[in-house]
Nucleic acid binder design. Structure first.
Lengths: 222, 222
DNA sequence: TCTCCCGATTTCCGATCCGATTTGATATCG
DNA sequence: CGATATCAAATCGGATCGGAAATCGGGAGA
């Protein structure tokens, strides 16, 4: 009834904990394989164990933490070579198709938004490589998420954004090299969108993913 | 130390509840949109609320139940036309590719197993259409799951099997029509596997999915 | 007859508690 | 000295409890 005053909405403590943990995991504040104690976290955050469990239960299904019965939770380990390849293969099945659909379905406004995102990624980055990567990663995630959304297939969008989290954690190890290459490849995708060229968009997206794959292949060869 | 006697392993009550709820949802014992009360279930199953919450939390992420804050859980509603189309589109991206990989990677043993599954689906079904569909659905799910597994991409397999649950719930409305058509299409897929023909397998899988889509399209037109 | 309001009941969310099991460090033995 | 047994502390899974919000039903008023 009252539009000016905020109605005090009850918070979902479990969700808050989820967000906090997700940030900690994404920023490596909680390292891979690190043990995560439920009651330690409960004391730390000043809440009871119940919402902690709820959050961890959700993170487990997303593959970000691993539960061992009667032993506790651990942050997931880094992607193995096999898992990384599987992820790339999956992306090659989904994202080029999403890009192709997006090329025809995307509105002018969405295209503008995407262009803005790409432009922002070209801006000179802070000298600190860590925060430079953080800025990049956030834009990059949105870039891909927007394309997935423009495909107008909600299921596709969900899966793409979901899997991207793992990719982020993987890249976090090598944030120095990633940014520059991605920028020119994003430009190619945008060009295809501007031309309303589905197969061109798919091809550009495919190249983008395959290059990313190739860039990190060396990592596993030692 | 003792290999003959089973070591009494502590059970994960939460998992048990999860399995029970999954069965109830898949068999429509819990109907779409039906409210699911945590402490009612707790009394019913003779356990506390804690494992119930854990199970429901997992089901929520799989999209099988829906949580409204401070209001409770509800079984998910039937797929809308849009969601159904999205699901089909996703399957067309994933399963033909999985079939193509499977055609080259599948071992002879796995191929035999798949043939057995397909053969079992051709057996005369019980006269009761309901249990006939149940038998069919179980084999059908395994058929697709085995193909996804043979693709040797764990991520792909997970997503395919995951999404299949929703398809099952959808089809449950119309179990009469489904079975017969699927059998001959499965045979076509198997033929391609026997010929070790990736693109043939992909094509057959694609046709299978598109036919399934077409068969149910009429449902939404009234 | 329909709508609105109000109270009782249901039910959820989060907190706390407890028995059972793992973990890890120390002590003991070969 | 290394491996195994032992024991204490940490921690999990599940049970129980209390406050708060939503739902449901009945009754009053238009």
């Amino acid at each position: 009834m009252n539009s000016t005053y905020q109605i005090s909405k009850p918070v979902r403590l479990g969700m808050e904990v989820y967000d906090i943990l997700l940030k900690k995991l994404m920023s490596l504040e909680i390292q891979p394989e690190e043990r995560i104690s439920v009651d330690k976290l409960a004391r730390e955050l000043g809440v009871s164990q119940t919402p902690i469990r709820e959050a961890l239960s959700q993170l487990e299904i997303q593959g970000l933490v691993l539960k061992v019965h009667l032993s506790g939770y651990r942050a997931a380990s880094q992607l193995t070579r096999k898992q990384f390849d599987d992820l790339c293969e999956l992306r090659l099945l989904l994202e080029p198709a999403a890009a192709a659909k997006a090329a025809t379905l995307m509105s002018v406004g969405e295209l503008d938004e995407l262009s803005t995102l790409a432009a922002r990624m070209e801006e000179p980055s802070p000298s600190d490589p860590r925060s430079a990567y953080n800025a990049f990663a956030q834009q990059d995630a949105r870039f891909h998420a927007e394309i997935a959304r423009a495909s107008q297939n909600d299921l596709l969008r969900e899966i793409v954004t979901q899997q991207r989290v793992h990719l982020h954690l993987f890249r976090l190890r090598f944030y120095a090299r990633v940014t520059q290459d991605a920028i020119v490849e994003h430009a190619a995708i945008l060009d295809a969108f501007r031309r309303r060229d589905p197969s061109g968009a798919a091809t550009a997206m495919r190249a983008h993913i395959e290059n990313a794959h190739a860039r990190f292949k060396s990592v596993y060869e030692d």
